[in-house]
């Protein structure tokens, strides 16, 4: 649910990073924050526990520039990945315009990935969205680790429809902006259609 303000000529879009616990959602936002021009970003807010696990959400506002005279702002959110924070995850999906699913490539996390994607589908449906029609990108994160599953296998398991997907190493930034850019594009094209 984007917000178009004709008075201040602004458009605000909400993007959410979803995925199992410790898959690197917050790390994605940290990298984007680090690499963005200071004029273009607001403060990054992390509501996290003392051990830096996300408690409610991370929030990063990005003002990327103008399209056809409209200031375009992206509000990036992450959800808490741990299973027992489901109530909070539902809240953050309210009014979402696009979703990045960050998958953990490590073999031992495949089950967690599948569970989390299923959880995403259910929670989106509760808000009246359909995972098959909402702008959506999958990111296969942690490709630098030794015990990773082959991408082809992950595609089969997590992305049978062959939607846009990217390999990434969020700690060093590989694939982070490709993912964001692709999702932003899908969301803006959705706006173009005027729904």
């Amino acid at each position: 649910m984007s917000f178009i303000n004709y008075s201040s000529r602004e458009i605000n879009v909400k993007l959410v990073y979803y995925g199992p616990g410790l898959c690197g959602k917050t790390t994605n936002l940290h990298y984007i924050y680090k690499k963005t021009n200071p004029d273009a970003k607001g403060k990054m807010i992390s509501l996290a526990t003392e051990t830096e696990r996300t408690l409610f959400f991370d929030f990063l506002p990005l003002a990327l520039g103008e399209i056809r005279g409209f200031k375009t702002r992206f509000h990036l959110y992450t959800v808490p990945g741990q299973v027992f924070y489901d109530a909070s995850r539902k809240l953050i999906l309210k009014g979402v315009d696009g979703v990045v699913f960050v998958a953990d490539s490590q073999l031992e996390r495949m089950e967690a990935n599948v569970e989390s994607i299923e959880n995403l589908r259910i929670n989106l449906a509760e808000q009246g969205y359909n995972l098959d029609t909402i702008p959506y990108v999958i990111q296969y994160n942690k490709r630098d680790l030794p015990s990773v599953a082959p991408v082809a296998e992950m595609e089969k398991l997590l992305n049978p429809k062959g939607l846009p997907s990217f390999e990434a190493v969020a700690t060093t930034g590989i694939g982070v902006f490709d993912t964001l850019k692709n999702l932003a594009k899908q969301v803006l094209f959705e706006l173009k259609k005027g729904r």
Binding site: I4, G65, T72, K181, K192
Partner: peptide, 20 residues
């Protein structure tokens, strides 16, 4: 009236430009 949307004529290039 949605055709009045400022995004009706948005192009790939417009979006690429956003990310510099």
């Amino acid at each position: 009236k949605t055709s009045a949307s400022p995004f009706a004529e948005i192009t790939d290039e417009d979006i690429d430009n956003l990310f510099g």
